[in-house]
């Protein structure tokens, strides 16, 4: 096996082209030793294109090789995509966050990947370039082919960055997880939400939960409950019920029963929506 640290995106694509399916791209490589190794690895962690984090043209653009630690620290992300900063701060351990990347979190297609859950709630799209030089955008939730299987073919496609609209005034986002331990733990459930308000009325809402299906899952019925209303006690209680009943969840000996996981989805959905709502209201009228 050979290992190449690519110096720019074109070089990385060239290597993939030349290797005819024998090479694969990686970034943080934290899951590398858990898999069978290909003949060639192309490391994207040092590319200019994949390590930038910026706001331009009305979009937040996060390079796929931005680490969880830098995303969690970034003032830009903390102020305009709080859910993502919160998610990145809870992944694994400091050591894993220092090397694991946002793009890897998406491309690995783990069903409870914290960053991916936040990205879906934020409405993020992956900007993907293939070896033909074609670039396309796909919603993060569309990138899942099954449990731990991505539609991205890492021998011919590269996620360059993830883009979404930053939270503006009147918008708020939040992420929460429930894990059996406060560090070094996979979550039993993780949720994220993004809400836009006008006055105290909810104008738009995206609510995501995992692990429910292979991909982070939008809770459309729960979202519908909150559209165009000023939420009060009754609604929040309904939100919990709706979120819990909207999901099909599985249990496992290792983690918890399906019934309990369903209950957690409900509780966390309500909590994360409330938090996102409060943040949205607080930022309405110029406060951040």
């Amino acid at each position: 096996m050979s290992y190449i640290i690519a110096s720019d995106l074109n070089q990385a694509l060239q290597i993939l082209r030349d290797s005819k399916g024998q090479a694969r791209v990686i970034a943080g490589a934290t899951d590398l030793f858990l898999q069978t190794l290909p003949a060639e690895l192309v490391d994207l962690a040092e590319l200019y294109e994949t390590t930038q984090l910026e706001e331009s043209g009305g979009l937040l653009s996060i390079g796929s090789a931005v680490t969880h630690a830098s995303a969690a620290r970034s003032l830009l992300i903390r102020s305009k995509a709080a859910a993502l900063a919160e998610a990145c701060a809870m992944i694994g351990s400091p050591q894993v966050r220092n090397i694991g990347t946002i793009g890897g979190n998406v491309a690995n297609a783990a069903p409870a990947a914290d960053a991916a859950v936040a990205l879906v709630a934020l409405g993020a799209k992956a900007v993907i370039t293939d070896i033909e030089g074609q670039t396309r955008e796909e919603a993060v939730e569309e990138l899942y082919a099954g449990y731990n299987r991505s539609v991205i073919d890492s021998s011919s496609e590269i996620i360059g960055r993830l883009v979404f609209k930053p939270c503006a005034a009147g918008e708020g986002s939040a992420f929460m997880r429930f894990a059996p331990r406060r560090a070094l733990a996979l979550p039993l459930v993780n949720v994220a939400a993004r809400i836009r308000v006008s006055g105290r009325r909810i104008e738009a809402v995206r609510m995501v939960a995992a692990p429910v299906k292979p991909a982070p899952t939008r809770l459309f019925e729960t979202e519908a409950l909150l559209q165009e209303i000023i939420p009060g006690h009754e609604i929040w209680a309904k939100v919990e019920e709706a979120a819990a009943s909207e999901v099909e969840v599985r249990g496992s000996i290792l983690r918890c029963s399906g019934q309990y996981r369903r209950h957690l989805v409900g509780t966390l959905a309500e909590r994360v929506l409330k938090e996102a709502y409060q943040r949205a209201c607080a930022s309405d009228g110029g406060e951040t």
């Binding site: 490589a29 934290t30 590398l32 030793f33 690895l41 351990s93 090397i99």
Partner: peptide, 9 residues
Amino acid sequence: QPVNACLVP
């Protein structure tokens, strides 16, 4: 930055 040497190629 602290990293787990076992996970770094």
